[in-house]
Design a protein around this nucleic acid. Structure first.
Lengths: 245, 245
DNA sequence: TCGTTATGTAACAGAATGCAACAAAATCGA
DNA sequence: TCGATTTTGTTGCATTCTGTTACATAACGA
């Protein structure tokens, strides 16, 4: 891959300076930005392979920016924060960040995370115009992210409800890795604003998973695509490929 | 992908212990090895997704081992060393290592590197030949590590529970050699949560072994595949072949 | 042979999960 | 707007999974 272009978003000039310099010394093109406007200018203006986004941006909220970016663009994001508390970390993942790193951090660690995220997303990153590619295919099924419709291997259209559609999107965004019910729940609420941490209330996720299974599993009683990871949660496509076209 | 199987090669027992434990807590199957012979036994005996190889191995030379492994196998290797000097790092890459990490290292960093290398090679593995096919065969039985299903010599499908599947994976990873209950238990807890060191409390392993025997032994009362080593533990396939296709 | 220890295993208990039925909420249509 | 329809969360129960315990056997040493 070409030299990665990394957008460094932090309102503290010193920190910005330090990070951009370090990244440049390690073979990246670092683009500094102090606020959301500068972020947009860079992203709209040219290729950006990764965003390092500070959670605290003065009056703006990094999490919000992250959420918006995620909704509109498909650029990898690593959240950076002085707060290492777990709930912050969870918040980061909830809004769609690819990774999370706490300040102060070891430069080596930062580099490792950056490399990891870049190598993970390189495939999709290389598909430059992936903005329009909203059809996912897995195990003979296809899912049109725009219309929210699913086509079975037998080419039969299946309609998903809104909730089911969202769940499928979340799963497609995280194939192969087990997701806890909490993670799923957090990611399900992509509509409204920051939701008050979906509690461990009921069994909504379980039931929702069951409903989705009834529509996208050939044999819902013996799930092959959306499997249960007992004591953990659910895994999507643990042993089938997911492609995006 | 299935749970990654990581071979930890270090001649210092403490370091080995520390690393294997840490990796297990983070969702891997960790296989300890102290020297080249043990490395070969593991690699020849079963699937290994990644090798963490110490550069200094007492009288042996990690770099040499790395070079040989590279020539013969196609397994990803991360070199580990107390020497962080650049020329060492370069040497590591020169002999074909996929990455290099200096001791003492931050556990987080280790994990990041491991994940990065795994995710990097996972893709190519799927592109290239399916070298990591996950079907094991022994004594007429076959086990699909992905679906976790077992087929009897009479071609009858047998479903294993999660725990049984994991046990079988652990056994398949260490055929022919006796495993103590503690070793089995340690490798069984790959849930990802930090488990309070499985005590010698109950007889969970015994019961689990019994259950697995009921499913994969023609005559569970007279085990031929999963034998008891009185006073020690259990041996898998002590006198049958295990092949991987 | 006898007593001790290790192992096999049935029975039990607690937890996790699947799911049908119900109820509340949202959406739709006229 | 109002009732009908669809969607979505909750609840209770059945099922499955898994560790513990208790007791029966088997193996071992003296």
């Amino acid at each position: 891959m070409a030299i990665p272009r990394i957008l460094v978003v932090d309102d503290d000039p010193d920190m910005r300076q330090m990070m951009t310099q370090f990244l440049r010394q390690n073979g990246s093109i670092a683009l500094p930005a102090a606020n959301e406007v500068e972020v947009r200018n860079h992203i709209d203006g040219g290729r950006v392979d990764l965003v390092l986004l500070d959670v605290m941006l003065g009056d703006e909220n990094g999490l919000e920016i992250c959420k918006r970016l995620r909704r509109e663009q498909d650029v990898p994001i690593i959240m950076v924060s002085a707060l290492s508390a777990d709930h912050q970390r969870m918040d980061g993942y909830a809004v769609g960040a690819d990774d999370y790193i706490a300040k102060p951090f070891n430069p080596e660690l930062l580099l490792a995370r950056v490399k990891a995220v870049l190598s993970r997303t390189r495939r999709s990153a290389s598909l430059v115009h992936r903005r329009n590619t909203n059809t996912f295919t897995f195990a003979g099924w296809s899912f049109d992210a725009k219309s929210g419709e699913v086509q079975s291997p037998a080419k039969i259209q299946v309609a998903l409800s809104r909730r089911e559609t969202t769940l499928l999107q979340v799963l497609l965004a995280n194939p192969h890795i087990p997701l806890t019910r909490e993670e799923i729940a957090a990611n399900l609420d992509i509509t409204g604003e920051a939701q008050p941490q979906t509690e461990t209330t009921g069994r909504a996720i379980d039931v929702l998973v069951g409903r989705l299974r009834n529509k996208i599993e050939t044999n819902p009683k013996d799930p092959q695509i959306l499997k249960t990871e007992r004591g953990v949660g659910y895994v999507f496509a643990s042993d089938v490929d997911v492609t995006e076209t």
